[in-house]
Design a protein around this nucleic acid. Structure first.
Lengths: 228, 228
DNA sequence: CTTTAATTCATACGTTCGTTTTAATCATAG
DNA sequence: CTATGATTAAAACGAACGTATGAATTAAAG
């Protein structure tokens, strides 16, 4: 009755879009599916957002704005407590990936649906999506990279960047791949090991990421001069 | 002249499909693009393969058949040499992921193009693709899983499966994400650290994977009873 | 109530999609 | 050369796509 409704339609479209883009990808989802599931008129998307591309961007912005702020906030907090001293790698990894993973338990912020969408979209071929995500991430990524450089001064920067990249991949798959996991295991994974038990996935993944991040530096066999 | 030509058209379509599916995804690639780039008639795809889906599957089968056999061959060889004793984790990881990564240098087997396609497709939303890949991988995956179980008897099986999954993710991203890497670094990565230097990526990734695989087991905070 | 702006609705537009059909062309065997 | 089967070519199919339009409906202001 006395609702403050900021256009209920907008939110319904965003929710439906989030779920369908996650399930079928950007190209694989039609406006008719979205408006159908949202229970609104076909023209509503173009009225409220302008285009399908703009809708996709808004689906992400709605969640990423918060995630970026939260990641910044956590990092600021930790660095303030450290009083100028470098952070521990485990703190940085938790600030970046832990913050992300904990979103999965927060239905108000999209929950697992958004996380799976995000994970899948990082490999999404569509040009405009990757460009948009890169822009959205840029500032936060830079801060965390710097923190890692300070935290691991003995490790070459290029190596850290690569390992950051590897960590991103492992994390995305861990979330996006409910189904990709079936590649590895037929026998349905047992109750307490299920993908839905986010509280168990987080420490599992964290331990893997840290192990990778801190593993011995690779030995490049042979000189590099005798190759192209 | 005296060519044994097994229909040149077929191969041209497969090559064009491989490249375009890699660049724009399955849904994002049209048959007109494929036949256009291949320089063949539009109807040729349906004539030679039956449908777009069937073409996609053939694109993968052409490469995966060899990859699966090679992975099996390498594992058989190592296990024969071990004479019943468990393999080292590094051997198994290299047999599975190293064999894959070395395909990138083999243009005759699709090179980086196919590897990027494969990496992206693991998160591809299209149902039939994931089902197809799961089926193709099943047998080989089972063998490597068993080898890992034997190699790390003190680690719970569920934990190994998860870490296998994480390794898959890190590897896929490492290959597929030339562009996703731009998320992490603006400044174009230097010559010898470029993504194209496969000979440097392999030891880098291998060291990361092994570090993650052998990292300390996670401590699950609190009991599991007080949660849903 | 009347007016005005915001939103929703049904409908249609012009393209592009994957696939099919029918005819033309090619290679090869008798 | 002729006959036959395999391949290529040109054209069209209906369906689905994202988007735009103008009328109907709703909500808020005067």
């Amino acid at each position: 009755m006395a609702e403050v409704r900021t256009s209920d339609t907008r939110e319904r479209i965003l929710d439906a879009g989030e779920r369908l883009f996650m399930a079928h990808g950007y190209e694989g989802t039609s406006m008719r599916q979205i408006t159908g599931e949202a229970g609104v008129n076909l023209a509503a998307v173009n009225y409220h957002f302008g285009s399908k591309e703009a809708l996709m961007q808004e689906v992400f912005r709605r969640r990423l704005d918060w995630l970026n702020e939260e990641r910044m906030r956590v990092l600021d907090l930790m660095e303030a407590e450290a009083e100028g001293k470098p952070l521990k790698p485990s703190q940085i990894v938790d600030g970046f990936f832990g913050t992300l993973l904990r979103m999965a338990g927060d239905e108000k912020r999209g929950g697992v649906t958004f996380l799976r969408l995000l994970g899948r979209t990082l490999t999404e071929p569509s040009e405009f999506i990757r460009a948009f995500l890169a822009h959205e991430y840029q500032v936060v990524m830079e801060r965390y990279k710097e923190a890692l450089f300070r935290s691991l001064p003995e490790v070459p920067k290029a190596e850290i960047i690569w390992r950051f990249h590897f960590m991103l991949g492992a994390t995305s798959y861990a979330i996006a791949g409910t189904d990709a996991l079936r590649l590895v295991t037929d026998w349905q994974i047992e109750d307490e090991d299920s993908i839905d038990r986010l509280d168990r996935l987080v420490p599992r993944l964290m331990s893997f990421l840290l192990g990778g991040l801190r593993s011995p530096l690779p030995q490049f066999s042979e000189t590099t001069a005798d190759r192209k």
